[in-house]
Design a protein around this nucleic acid. Structure first.
Lengths: 277, 277
DNA sequence: TTTTGTTATTAATAAATTGATAATAAGTGG
DNA sequence: CCACTTATTATCAATTTATTAATAACAAAA
């Protein structure tokens, strides 16, 4: 029988927080970048890949498996602050582009107990995180095969290990535009991490067209060729040079620096031109 | 001191879920629709508005204030299932378009205790939910004033009550494209609901261009004029007729029904043409 | 019955954008 | 100095978008 309160204060003083069964909250971080193949004839060989940062679990559950970096949200910590803290702890990096991707909350997603996880997508220029990663942390290159209309196979590779999984895109009822994903096969990635990876790749693909987030993956100075390759690997298709240049013309700023040494005509270096207003 | 386990099962059997402090999880539902002004000369008067469904709180905290419908996530319920259940409970509606919007998790967003809330956006044809709502539930028309470059004022009105609040868009550090919102003023809306509303309006505005979600707000048969008005109210600007018709040409199917009685040339009725493949 | 007002719908053309090909530039490595 | 490679821009065709305006068809007023 609910008691009758007259003021907000009175109610709060009396409030029993244990009325509802509680649960735990985590954040997972999908750190994405683009592989760098500086020395290759990259225009010809299409070697550029998306890459994702994984860490090897040294605890149960999924001990020994690779997973996305993550951690529990502290009780006195804003949700949006958690991924930034975790990133600092795991990679010692600050000032990283982060955006919330999706909150995954299936009942059985974690074998330990009920844990809901907010996935955040982080974008970074790979050069900022290359040396300092230990044995437990590794970049994996992503290859994506569209198996059929509704099945996607993903292969992750870090040079010595390979991880494969398949995901089925399900056209949800009651929606007219959005897929939800379901894991069909998964050797080795922990938890529902495959879903996070595919969601992130899709989000990036969508947002590259109407935002400037790509520039978070570029170093300060870059050539238009490099930028174009990043676009191409994210979109999964070749772009024509003049068309591409037209698209990004007002997003970049020409510098007077040049990049030489490529065995061909040197290319001009550009920087990101921040929006006015 | 962590004990050493040899198998996953062994670990789980021994796992103590109380290691981390737990919290509660809610879902909020941002039910959006478009006001219907059937009898007006709507092309001239721009009366069409976005509307949002609010319920009056009859409990503390925020007793007597309007807020988004919502509820706690059950411990044995998938996160994505919760908004569907809540919607069924509060409005008796099923088969509603729903998509996860954002998970809000600031420490102080609920005065009771630590509660993280996933907001879901629901889109509906208003005619499906008009009669059957009681006194505690009401549609509010939304008017949006761009006060300055970074401040937006919102006014909600249900005919007898008016709710106002202001939100500041903050260009986040470390990002190049996204705003985060901060409530500047808020008379009467409960919790961080103003943020949810503005996020949803922005999401809708973005997605209308590359998805077919608008059709979730239309009834089965509609005129192109009606559809255009919905586009215009979502985008907040007028569109030219021929341009609009080109854009949606391959999304709609012409029927042989007509709508008469408008005091002008009757308009043909169309339906949503579902994507092939 | 005719006129006026209103929205629907489409034609037609100008303007802008995009697509595709090709030409020229400027390094490196033989 | 030549071959090779990528960079960069020009050019023109094809397509799309913007804009104006013409015509259609009903309701209501005159």
């Amino acid at each position: 029988m609910p008691k009758n309160y007259n003021t907000e204060e009175e109610f709060l003083k009396d409030y029993d927080p244990s009325t509802f069964e509680k649960l735990s909250m985590m954040v997972d971080i999908l750190m994405l970048s683009v592989s760098n193949e500086e020395t290759e004839n990259y225009r010809k060989t299409d070697k550029k890949k998306m890459s994702v940062l994984l860490v090897k679990r040294d605890n149960y559950p999924f001990k020994g498996r690779w997973c996305l970096p993550g951690g529990f949200v502290r009780i006195d910590e804003n949700l949006d602050d958690a991924p930034r803290r975790v990133l600092k702890e795991e990679t010692n990096l600050e000032n990283i582009y982060l955006e919330q991707l999706y909150t995954f909350g299936d009942v059985d997603r974690d074998p330990r107990m009920r844990i809901i996880s907010s996935a955040y997508m982080a974008l970074i220029d790979k050069n900022r995180l290359c040396e300092k990663i230990g044995e437990k942390t590794s970049w994996f290159d992503i290859t994506l095969y569209e198996e059929s209309d509704d099945i996607v196979d993903l292969v992750l590779d870090n040079g010595s290990e390979t991880i494969k999984f398949s995901i089925r895109k399900i056209l949800r009822e009651q929606t007219t535009d959005r897929y939800s994903f379901k894991i069909v096969e998964n050797d080795s990635l922990a938890f529902d991490n495959p879903l996070v990876i595919l969601s992130g790749l899709e989000r990036l693909k969508n947002k590259i067209g109407y935002t400037d987030i790509v520039f978070n993956m570029m170093s300060e100075y870059f050539t238009l060729g490099e930028l174009q390759q990043v676009y191409e690997v994210i979109l999964g298709k070749k772009l024509l040079d003049p068309a591409f240049r037209r698209i990004i013309a007002d997003k970049v700023l020409k510098t007077d620096k040049m990049k030489t040494g490529g065995g061909h005509r040197p290319s001009r270096l550009f920087t990101y031109k921040k929006k006015e207003k």
